[in-house]
Amino acid sequence: MIYFRYPFSDQILTIDEASAQKAVRFVSFDTDEIIDFNGNSKEISLNQFLDNTTDSDSLSSELIDFKEEKETDYLTKIQQVIDFVKENNLSKLVISRRKLLNLERDKVNLTQTFLHLCEAYPNAFVYFFIKDGKCWMGAFSEVLGKFNKKTSEFETMSLAGTIPVHEDWTHKEIEEQHPVTDYIKNILKDYSGEVGQSETYDHPSGNIKHLRTDFKVKINRQDVEKIISELHPTPAVCGFPKEFCQKAIAEFEDHPRSFYAGYIKVETDETIQYFVNLRCAEFFQNAVLLYVGGGITADSSPEKEWQETELKAGAVLKNLSFN
């Protein structure tokens, strides 16, 4: 079962599984785990969606023996990451954590939660799926790539830096976004003679905002997957250089990211779109795990990084609907 909604759309879509065509694919951060939904996408009405109301207590899997990372342990680790970033002269290294919400006395109305996310984040790709014993939901607006089959235009964006919507940018966020922009531009140069690049501007997302730069190029259809494999994971969810930072993440993080910071591929007759899977949560019968992270730089403050992850967790947390 899967439901999703495109950015700036009111349509709720699902998959008609009568076809063998791969319509929606979820790829994990390490690309080792893939969940496919085969068929053709089709719109359903709000009433049809509500007719299939699903609660967390109907899920088949439970979270067992999970220990949440304490704030003190996180602060100690982030200071070690800052030292590591300085020692290795890294522009940034992205470190994630998981926030636990126990459902011992409550159950989450997953259907209403999806609708709340759609309302709260009109510019986001919002999804909700249950398959193979897993249940995930998320809402985020970072596009890893979008290919127009008719025009051969490929679009992507550099999205990094996070602060509350009412605050002003500091040197830290500006320096955090620069390597993401340079990284993407250098990859696209290998596939197109002309790279269109926008000015950097604010990208609001609910209670927070990011810095964003857009790119547009014309490419060959057969190069789409090559570009995506080079772009993922971007410095925005990993760091740079990519391979070095991936190894460092494995050392500093004591948990698998699973589908967090992976990507979602959605294909239709006209387009192939790839969305980065951030602001997301994994749902169990007895708990919710909220996945969040932050770009650690030499200028980072452990306390501010903790506050930033708490702020990001609120993107899903404040939109949960309980029965």
Rank of each mutant, 00 (worst) to 15 (best):
L188V: 04
T170G: 15
S198W: 07
V126W: 01
H171W: 12
T72F: 12
E68C: 04
T76L: 14
P241N: 08
D168P: 07
L320F: 10
P179T: 13
Q48N: 13
Y191L: 04
E87T: 12
K146V: 11
R105I: 01
G145N: 06
K242F: 07
V143L: 12
F84Y: 13
G138A: 07
N109I: 03
Y183K: 03
N220F: 14
L290I: 11
N207W: 09
M1H: 10
R105V: 07
T151K: 11
K86H: 10
E173A: 12
L101E: 01
R97D: 03
T156L: 06
G293M: 00
F66D: 02
D299Y: 15
E303Y: 15
A160G: 06
F49A: 05
Q112V: 02
M137S: 01
F140M: 04
Q11K: 09
K67T: 02
G262F: 07
F128W: 02
N323R: 14
D32Y: 02
S301L: 14
T213Q: 14
N109S: 03
V81R: 05
T271K: 15
T53Q: 15
I227Q: 01
Q112E: 10
D73P: 02
E119T: 11
K22W: 04
L289D: 04
L101A: 02
F154D: 00
V27Y: 00
V27P: 00
S60L: 09
T271S: 14
K218C: 15
P241I: 03
I78Y: 02
R98L: 03
A120L: 04
S141P: 05
H166T: 13
I15R: 07
R279D: 11
R212S: 10
N148W: 10
E104Y: 05
F147I: 05
Q246P: 11
